[in-house]
Simulated scan of single mutants.
Amino acid sequence: MMQPPGDDRRLPPALAELARLGFDYDGGDGIDFEPYDAFDSADETTDWFRHWTGNHELDDVPYRVFGQDGSGGLAAVWLARPGRPLAEQPVVFLGSEGESGVVAGNLSDFLWVVADGVGPLESVLYEAPEPRPDAQRSEYTALAERHATTPRRPARDIIAEARAEFPTFTEDLDELCR
Rank of each mutant, 00 (worst) to 15 (best):
R137M: 15
R10V: 11
Q89V: 06
Y63M: 03
A144R: 01
A135E: 04
L143F: 05
G28W: 06
L125I: 09
R81W: 07
R64A: 09
F39Q: 02
L121Y: 08
G30P: 08
M2N: 14
G117M: 02
W112K: 07
I159H: 00
C177W: 13
D172V: 08
A16L: 09
A148P: 02
R50E: 05
G22V: 06
S123K: 05
G67Y: 03
G28E: 08
S108I: 05
V65A: 02
E145A: 09
L21V: 07
P120V: 01
A155V: 06
D116E: 11
Q3S: 14
E127M: 13
D109G: 11
P12V: 11
E127A: 14
A128T: 14
H147Q: 07
V91Y: 00
Q68I: 05
E171V: 11
P5N: 12
A162K: 01
A87T: 13
E97K: 15
V61L: 01
D24L: 11
N55Q: 08
T46N: 10
W52Y: 11
A75Q: 05
I31R: 00
V92I: 10
S123Q: 02
R137S: 14
E97S: 15
F39W: 06
L15F: 02
W78G: 01
D29F: 14
R146D: 09
D24T: 10
G119Y: 02
V61K: 00
E57T: 15
L11P: 00
E122G: 13
L173R: 08
D69V: 04
Y36P: 01
E44Y: 10
D109H: 12
R163Q: 05
D47E: 15
Y126F: 15
G30Y: 07
P4S: 11
G27N: 11
V113N: 03
G67N: 06
F66M: 06
E57S: 15
I159N: 00
G70Y: 08
L15Q: 00
V124W: 02
Q89C: 10
L74P: 02
D60H: 12
L111A: 03
E34G: 11
M2H: 13
A142S: 12
P131G: 04
W112Q: 05
E127L: 14
G27F: 07
G28A: 07
A76M: 03
R50Q: 13
P35W: 00
R156I: 04
R20M: 12
E161C: 07
E139W: 12
V113H: 02
D47R: 15
R153E: 13
F23E: 03
L173C: 09
T168E: 13
G22D: 10
F33D: 04
P4L: 13
A164K: 13
I158L: 11
F66I: 01
V65M: 03
G101N: 07
D29G: 13
S108P: 11
S71T: 15
D157S: 11
D59K: 12
